[in-house]
């Protein structure tokens, strides 16, 4: 039975990643232990180049850990991409030769979902992502934010149990990011999926996540885990609360030194 080995939905033990080329060895990540609970919203923040995206690629099965083990629903993630995992990347991953509907149906067609069922799921996804009027448009006719919605819809329509997001709103303006964040919270509540979000925006992490992992400069390790304690029913208005300020302040406390390291400055004495 899946999950028999470990109670957590996703479990990392002693995971590290080292990139070796002919001329160099880069220790990118770890060693790292991490447990994600089923249905939890977990965010990771860290200085640039700290191995956040490497971590996501390991979880997605896109690359293999040098050491340690990762399990998803009790099954080890190796070279094979696990079923039930959806990924939304920072870059625009929409297929320019397919219209919005066809883009969203891409994974369904791959799974041999019956045509009428595909249509129903795509229509539903178009509806909740506010893309109904653009079903027959091509990505080139859409704004960056709408293309990212297409990618999110393409992922969600497959009903993943674990959703990995790699700075999905990185390319969007602040207002759009807040609103997209709200959409994401709603989807997370409705689907009950476990969400793993990588972001460089502290306010985004603080607003969205149940728990926030703060990563060190390279090689990326978990420095600290912050519990936000937000209720499951929440939206962007949480940013008005004093607790929100406290969470972001704590995040910045941890990140300030690490970020300086990553941009090559010495750590100032307090």
């Amino acid at each position: 039975m899946p999950g028999a080995m470990s109670a957590s939905h996703v479990c990392l033990r002693g995971v590290s990643k080292v990139f070796r080329t002919e001329h160099s060895v880069v220790h990118a990540l770890g060693p790292m232990d991490l447990d994600l609970q089923r249905g939890e919203f977990y965010a990771v923040v860290g200085p640039s180049g700290c191995g956040k995206s490497t971590l996501l690629e390991l979880l997605a099965g896109l690359s293999k850990a040098t050491e340690g083990e990762i399990t998803f629903e009790g099954q080890p993630i190796g070279d094979n991409i696990p079923d039930g995992v959806g990924v939304v990347f920072q870059e625009d991953a929409s297929f320019p030769w397919l219209n919005v509907s066809e883009n969203i149906a891409f994974g369904l067609a791959q799974r041999n979902t019956p045509a009428n069922e595909q249509q129903r799921l795509v229509d539903h996804a178009l509806d909740i992502m506010g893309l109904k009027a653009f079903a027959n448009s091509y990505p080139s006719q859409l704004s960056g934010g709408m293309r990212q919605r297409v990618c999110i819809a393409r992922t969600l329509v497959l009903q993943p149990r674990l959703i990995l997001l790699d700075e999905p709103f990185g390319a969007l303006d602040q207002q759009t990011r807040l609103l997209m964040g709200e959409e994401l919270l709603k989807l997370w509540r409705d689907t009950g999926a476990t969400v793993f979000l990588i972001t460089h925006a502290l306010d985004e992490a603080a607003m969205l996540a149940d728990r926030i992992g703060v990563m060190s400069a390279r090689p990326g390790r978990l420095l600290e885990t912050i519990h936000t304690g937000w209720p499951r029913e929440r939206d962007s208005r949480i940013v008005e609360s004093p607790e929100f300020g406290q969470v972001t302040a704590r995040l910045w406390q941890h990140l300030r030194q690490e970020s300086m390291k990553s941009i090559g400055k010495g750590v100032e004495r307090a």
Binding site: L62, I81, V85, F89, F95, Q110
Partner: peptide, 25 residues
Amino acid sequence: PRVLIKSARIARLSPTQTALKVTLP
């Protein structure tokens, strides 16, 4: 773009399917 290849892998496409449905289009 690399991200399209990654998307194909996440959708669990075989190398032949990746060529026919992603890279060649």
